[in-house]
Nucleic acid binder design. Structure first.
Length: 237
DNA sequence: TCATTAAATTGTT
DNA sequence: AACAATTTAATGA
């Protein structure tokens, strides 16, 4: 069984474009950036592999460079409950990293992904030294709070079309996931896992959303045409 | 670079 | 859950 300890055994340094794509790197001074760059690691993660597990002590603050991850936890009955997906540009675990506690959820790739990691000690060093970094983390926490409130609302939705629409709107959050852009790379099967519907039903919902002009369905991905419509549309058909 | 083949994804029942 | 149709990725000349 692979675990997070083995993940960064396959690590390597980041290439220049990979480094450039990290949203917070540009907020640092040259000195801070140098320290962060020296510590940053990147690794390929396979589907099902654990990037972090509930209860394990925090060792890294993680970011998605490429691919798609899912954040989940296990409830009392042992059932797995998926909270959300994490698309490219997303960084997570800052709350736990700040408190140096143990992870509160499991993170696994839905497909082959490239994951970057910053050691928790370096994370704290940046918190102690960089105002730009603090601003990023604060903004991140604030946005995520909004996400979790939205997620609770989504859970109460019974209409599958609306569930899919709102979930998509969350994944297209430009602040939390700056790597996504216009096109979200996600298959209908992957989206089905995230929203907890069958692939068929997701396909039907996507067709309806496309008919409304909110998105365009592409092979292996979705293009946003009207993000507001995804967020606010109350009913379809 | 192009043609062929395999694999992945989508649309539908 | 199964199937056909479509798109992409991989392979090799």
């Amino acid at each position: 069984m692979p675990n997070e300890a083995s993940l960064f055994q396959r690590r390597r340094a980041l290439t220049a474009p990979e480094l450039d794509a990290i949203p917070w790197i540009h907020l640092l001074s040259s000195q801070e950036r140098q320290r962060a760059t020296e510590d940053l690691k990147i690794a390929d993660a396979d589907p099902g592999e654990y990037i972090c597990r509930i209860g394990r002590p925090v060792t890294y603050w993680f970011g998605v460079v490429d691919g798609l991850l899912k954040m989940s936890s296990d409830n009392a009955e042992g059932q797995t409950m998926t909270f959300t997906g994490v698309p490219p540009g997303g960084w997570f675990g800052e709350g736990t990293a700040m408190k140096r506690e143990t992870y509160r959820y499991n993170i696994q790739p839905l497909r082959k992904s490239r994951v970057a990691g910053l050691h928790v000690d370096t994370f704290h060093w940046l918190l102690d030294h960089s105002i730009g970094f603090n601003r990023f983390v604060m903004n991140q926490l604030n946005e995520r709070l909004g996400q979790f409130i939205a997620a609770r609302e989504i859970d109460r939705m019974t209409n599958p079309d609306i569930r899919v629409a709102r979930s998509l709107a969350s994944l297209f959050n430009a602040t939390l996931y700056p790597g996504v852009g216009e096109v979200l790379r996600i298959t209908q099967q992957e989206l089905a896992y995230l929203v907890g519907l069958s692939r068929q039903r997701v396909n039907e919902a996507l067709t309806a959303l496309a008919a409304n002009g909110a998105i365009k369905v592409e092979y292996g991905g979705l293009r946003v045409m009207d993000l507001q419509a995804l967020r606010s549309r109350v009913t379809f058909r």
